[in-house]
C-alpha cells in the first residue's frame, strides 16, 4: 500500500505540492488528475523516492521512503514521466540490467523477464537499441522495466502518453489485470482513462487535493448528471415544452448541432417526465439519452474554480 502524510514540496517561494495526504490500498488503482503543472509528477517523484519532500512523509508498503529507501524502492515499480531509459542499450540488455539491479537471478530472472516482455509484446524488438524505437515502444519498455520484479506497488507517471489508441487499450488492460493484488497510482490528464482503469480519482491543482472520490461520484457532481439530451426537428419547441416541466432547472440548445439538453433540479429524476411530455405533445425526436455526467466538465469546474478563487484573492 501507499500512504502519504502531509507531503509538501517547496521551491523557494513556490509551493509545488501543498500538504497532500492519501492512502491507497492493495487492489486499488488511484488515478491522479490535474492540469499541467499541478504537482502530479512532483508528488509521484516524492513517492518514488527521487525527490526529497520539504516536509511530510511517504510510505510504501510501510517503509518510509526517506529513512528506508532501499526497502521502499525494492517493493515498488516506477515509470518516470517520459519513460526515460538508456538509449544506447538494446531492449534485452536494458531489461536485463533492471532485473540484475532488482536482485533477480537464475530461473526467476528468466521467468520474470519473459513475463514482462510477453505482457508488453516486446519480443520483436529485443535486439534493437532503445534509441531506434518509436515513442510507443519506448513507453512499453519503460512499463516492462517497472513490472519486471512483480512489485507490490506500481507508480506510473502518464503510462499511456504517446501511445496510439490500440496500445492505450492494451496498457489499460495490463493495468487492470495487475490491479487485483497490487497497489497502483496512475497519473494522467486523459479523463477517459480514469473511467477505464481507476477505482478512485484524486484531482489536484496548484499542489492541493481538490477532490478525492470514485469516478462515478465525481461524475455525479457534473451538472450533466441525470440530464436528458435529444435531437429534434424543432429544438425551440422542445425547449419551451421541457422548460415548463416542474423538475427541470434549465434547457439549453447546443449552438453547433442543435442538440437540446434538459438539466434537472438538484436530486431529481427527469427521464420519465421528459419522455412522457414528448409523447403527450407528439413531438418527433431522433434520439434521446440519459447523461451520466461529464468528467471533463467536473474537472474544469473544480480546477478552474480554484484558479478564480486565487485570482479574486
Amino acid at each position: 500500500m501507499i500512504e502519504t502524510r502531509e507531503l509538501c514540496k517547496r521551491y523557494g517561494p513556490l509551493t509545488a505540492v501543498d500538504s497532500i495526504s492519501f492512502t491507497v490500498e492493495p487492489g486499488q488503482v488511484l488515478g491522479f488528475l490535474g492540469p499541467n503543472g499541478a504537482g502530479k509528477s512532483t508528488t509521484m517523484k516524492m513517492v518514488a523516492g527521487f525527490l526529497t519532500p520539504t516536509s511530510g512523509q511517504a510510505l510504501v508498503c510501510g517503509f518510509d521512503v526517506e529513512t528506508h529507501p532501499i526497502e521502499a524502492k525494492q517493493a515498488m515499480g516506477y515509470l518516470p514521466e517520459g519513460a526515460p531509459s538508456y538509449g544506447e542499450m538494446t531492449v534485452a540488455d536494458f531489461l536485463g540490467f533492471i532485473a540484475d539491479v532488482r536482485g533477480l537471478t537464475g530461473q526467476a530472472r528468466k521467468r520474470q523477464l519473459d513475463d514482462a516482455i510477453g505482457r508488453l509484446s516486446l519480443s520483436g524488438v529485443l535486439k534493437q537499441t532503445i534509441d531506434t524505437l518509436s515513442k510507443g515502444f519506448r513507453r512499453r519498455v519503460g512499463l516492462a522495466q517497472a513490472i519486471v520484479h512483480d512489485p507490490k506497488v506500481l507508480v506510473l507517471d502518464e503510462p499511456t502518453d504517446g501511445l496510439d489508441p490500440n496500445q492505450k487499450h492494451e496498457v489499460r488492460n495490463l493495468i487492470q489485470a495487475m490491479s487485483k493484488d497490487k497497489t497502483i497510482i496512475v497519473s494522467t490528464h486523459i479523463l477517459e482513462e480514469v473511467h477505464a482503469v481507476c477505482h478512485r480519482a484524486i484531482i489536484i491543482a496548484k499542489g492541493k487535493v481538490l477532490a478525492d472520490d470514485t469516478p462515478a461520484a465525481l461524475e455525479a457532481r457534473s451538472r450533466y448528471h441525470q440530464a436528458v439530451s435529444l435531437s429534434a426537428e424543432n429544438p425551440a419547441a422542445v425547449r419551451d415544452l421541457l422548460g415548463a416541466l416542474p423538475d427541470i432547472a434549465s434547457v439549453e440548445i447546443h449552438a453547433q448541432d442543435q442538440r437540446v439538453t434538459a438539466f434537472p433540479k438538484k436530486g431529481r429524476q427527469i427521464f420519465n417526465a421528459v419522455t412522457a411530455a414528448l409523447k403527450d405533445k407528439n413531438i418527433a425526436f431522433r434520439e434521446l439519452a440519459l447523461e451520466q455526467g461529464r468528467l471533463d466538465e467536473v474537472f474544469r469546474t473544480i480546477t478552474q474554480a480554484e484558479q478564480t478563487k486565487k485570482e479574486a484573492a
Binding site: Y78, E81, P84, S85, Y86, V101, G103
Partner: peptide, 13 residues
C-alpha cells in the same frame, strides 16, 4: 535524458 530519475529510484544507493 532523464535516466537519472530511473537510476535513483532503483534499489541502488
Amino acid at each position: 535524458s532523464g535516466s537519472i530519475e530511473l537510476l535513483l529510484t532503483l534499489p541502488v544507493t
